[in-house]
């Protein structure tokens, strides 16, 4: 246990986790920023949010992903960024799980929309597992990251 804690405290480990998750969030946000209507459609497919609000979410959420990812990479306000990223990861995990539970035949909408076949739930499962791993990676960042002062 102490060994695990030592690894988690390791500066290099914390930095790697920050960069991996940060870059992923930036990457995931780009297509949605360029194509908000496509992303709105992906949100609509989940049937979790009233239809009318989906455009608004599609216009703002990708920017939260982008900024949180960017700040994580830059180590600027990393704890604020981690809170947002953890919040988003949790929401995504719940949404993806509910889609699988309801047997929805949809695209994840996680990265670039419409990339693969929505006929199976594999894409959704992979995204859930990835998000859980990311959540785990955010623990040491939240606990041990030392923000740069910009």
């Amino acid at each position: 246990m102490a060994k695990l804690q030592a690894i988690m405290k390791n500066e290099f480990v914390v930095m790697s986790f920050r960069l991996i998750v940060g870059i992923f969030f930036i990457y995931a946000s780009l297509h949605k920023i360029v194509e908000p209507l496509e992303f709105a459609k992906d949100i609509q497919n989940y049937k979790l949010i009233p239809y009318a609000y989906t455009n608004l979410i599609a216009l703002v959420l990708p920017w939260i992903e982008f900024l949180a990812g960017l700040f994580l990479v830059l180590n600027y306000m990393p704890k604020g960024a981690v809170i947002l990223i953890n919040g988003m990861l949790l929401v995504f995990i719940v949404a993806l799980s509910s889609a699988i539970f309801r047997g929805l035949n949809i695209h994840c909408g996680c990265t670039s929309a419409g990339g693969s076949n929505p006929g199976s739930s594999t894409e959704l499962w992979i995204s859930i597992i990835r998000n859980i791993i990311f959540l785990g990676m955010m623990i040491p960042v939240l606990k041990y990251s030392k923000p740069e002062s910009l």
């Binding site: 920017w63 981690v82 809170i83 947002l84």
Partner: peptide, 20 residues
């Protein structure tokens, strides 16, 4: 402080989202 940072990032995202 981290919560304030998070709120700040969200506000910034809203502003950029609306402007773009």
């Amino acid at each position: 402080k981290p919560i304030l940072q998070a709120i700040l990032i969200v506000l910034l995202a809203i502003a950029i989202g609306i402007t773009t």
